[in-house]
Design a protein around this nucleic acid. Structure first.
Length: 124
DNA sequence: GGTTTGACTCGTA
DNA sequence: CTACGAGCCAAAC
């Protein structure tokens, strides 16, 4: 099932969008977020040259490989985005707290934990 | 083709 | 602080 996402989208000849490519690019980027830090959907989209495509980032994470640190991606408000599977939201929070990211009142302080992608690998 | 649907964001109230 | 609304735009129907 998840396997589906690892391969290019099953599209026909009329098919263009390189969502598969984009998704992989998202995964590569997310893989670089160090433990103890977070990034937002919009931020990642912008880093990939696709400003305003935050939702695409979210979609790419919806079916990402389980080994990806997807839990380090939160929304612009520093909150864990709502999704169909509530369990994964819980998992996200637990994983974050496990690596030292404080989630107070359902949100993380971006000013404190945001990953700048600038090579700063030191968790706060 | 048109419509719906979001792991989104931002401005405004 | 919360609550909407509008903007966004590609994927999925």
């Amino acid at each position: 099932a998840r396997r589906r996402w690892l391969d290019p989208p099953a599209t026909t000849a009329t098919a263009p969008p390189d969502f598969g490519r984009f998704a992989r690019a998202v995964w590569r980027l997310v893989a670089r977020i160090p433990p103890g830090r977070v990034a937002t959907y919009g931020q990642l989209a912008a880093m990939l040259g696709r400003a305003r495509h935050a939702r695409l980032v979210g979609r790419a994470l919806a079916g990402c490989p389980s080994e990806l640190p997807w839990h380090r991606v939160v929304n612009a408000a520093g909150r864990i985005s709502t999704r169909a599977r509530v369990a994964s939201m819980l998992t996200q929070r637990i994983r974050l707290e496990h690596e030292g990211v404080r989630v107070r009142r359902g949100r993380v302080t971006l000013r404190r934990y945001r990953w700048r992608g600038d090579g700063e690998e030191r968790p706060r």
